[in-house]
C-alpha cells in the first residue's frame, strides 16, 4: 500500500480517520494487484530500470506551513510533487503541470510561484506556504471565507491556486479594482468560469484588509 515517508518529520495531519484519498489509493492498489497478473513483474522491473540510473538525488530541508522537513529528493521532483506525494499535502493541485494554469500556486519564500515548474532540489532551506497553511485552527482565512461567500468556484479544482494567488495579489497591492485583479490574477485559469466570484472575493478581502 502507501509507503510512509520515514525520513519526513514530523507527520502532518496524522489523524487516525481514513481520508477519501486513502480509500482511493487503497482501492487503486488492490485493483492493480488483482488485475495485472503476469505483467506485474515486468512492470516492476521496467520501473527499476528507469529508477536505477537516477541515484541523482539530494537531501533537502523544506519548511512547509511552519513545519520543517528533511527529505531525500529525486532531482526531477517538483515542489508540487513533493507536497502531494511525499508530504500528503494534496490541497495544492496539479492541473497542466507546465506552468500555464496556476492550480499549483504556492508561496515560496513569500512569493507566489508555480510549484510544478520548481525543482525542489534547487530550494534547500526554502519556506513554503500552501493552502493548508492558511486557516487558523478551525477558522477559515478571510479570503477562503470570501470565496465561499462570493461563490468563487464551481468544481473547486483551481480554487486552492486561486486563493494562494489572490492572497499574493492583495499583499502586492494589485487588488485595487476588478480590472487590476483580472490582470494580476491572469496566471490562474478557471475552466468553470467562476471569474466574477473570484474577483469579488479578492476585492472584498482587499477592502477589508
Amino acid at each position: 500500500m502507501t509507503e510512509k515517508d520515514t525520513d519526513s518529520s514530523p507527520e502532518t495531519g496524522s489523524d487516525a480517520a481514513i481520508s477519501r484519498r486513502d480509500v482511493l489509493i487503497v482501492t487503486g492498489a488492490s485493483i492493480a494487484s488483482a488485475g495485472i497478473g503476469g505483467h506485474g513483474a515486468n512492470a516492476a522491473s521496467s520501473v527499476a530500470n528507469i529508477e536505477a540510473p537516477t541515484a541523482q538525488s539530494a537531501k533537502v530541508r523544506l519548511s512547509v506551513n511552519g513545519v520543517s522537513h528533511l527529505l531525500e529528493i529525486d532531482n526531477r521532483q517538483s515542489i508540487l510533487d513533493v507536497l502531494r506525494e511525499r508530504l500528503q499535502l494534496t490541497g495544492t493541485k496539479k492541473g497542466c503541470n507546465q506552468g500555464a494554469c496556476g492550480a499549483c500556486t504556492v508561496h515560496l519564500d513569500g512569493k507566489r510561484v508555480n510549484s510544478c515548474l520548481t525543482l525542489a532540489v534547487m530550494h534547500d532551506g526554502a519556506a513554503i506556504t500552501t493552502i493548508e497553511g492558511l486557516k487558523q485552527g478551525d477558522t477559515l482565512h478571510p479570503l477562503q471565507a470570501a470565496f465561499v461567500e462570493h461563490e468563487g468556484f464551481q468544481c473547486g479544482y483551481c480554487t486552492s491556486g486561486q486563493i494562494m494567488s489572490g492572497l499574493a495579489c492583495i499583499t502586492e497591492e494589485h487588488a485595487q479594482s476588478v480590472d487590476d485583479i483580472r490582470f494580476w490574477m491572469s496566471g490562474n485559469i478557471c475552466r468553470c468560469g467562476a471569474y466574477p466570484g473570484i474577483c469579488a472575493a479578492v476585492r472584498a478581502t482587499a477592502q477589508d484588509a
Binding site: G102, V113, L117, S165
Partner: peptide
C-alpha cells in the same frame, strides 16, 4: 509578459 507567478520565478 507571462503571469505574475512566472514573473516571480
Amino acid at each position: 509578459g507571462a503571469s505574475p507567478q512566472l514573473r516571480n520565478m
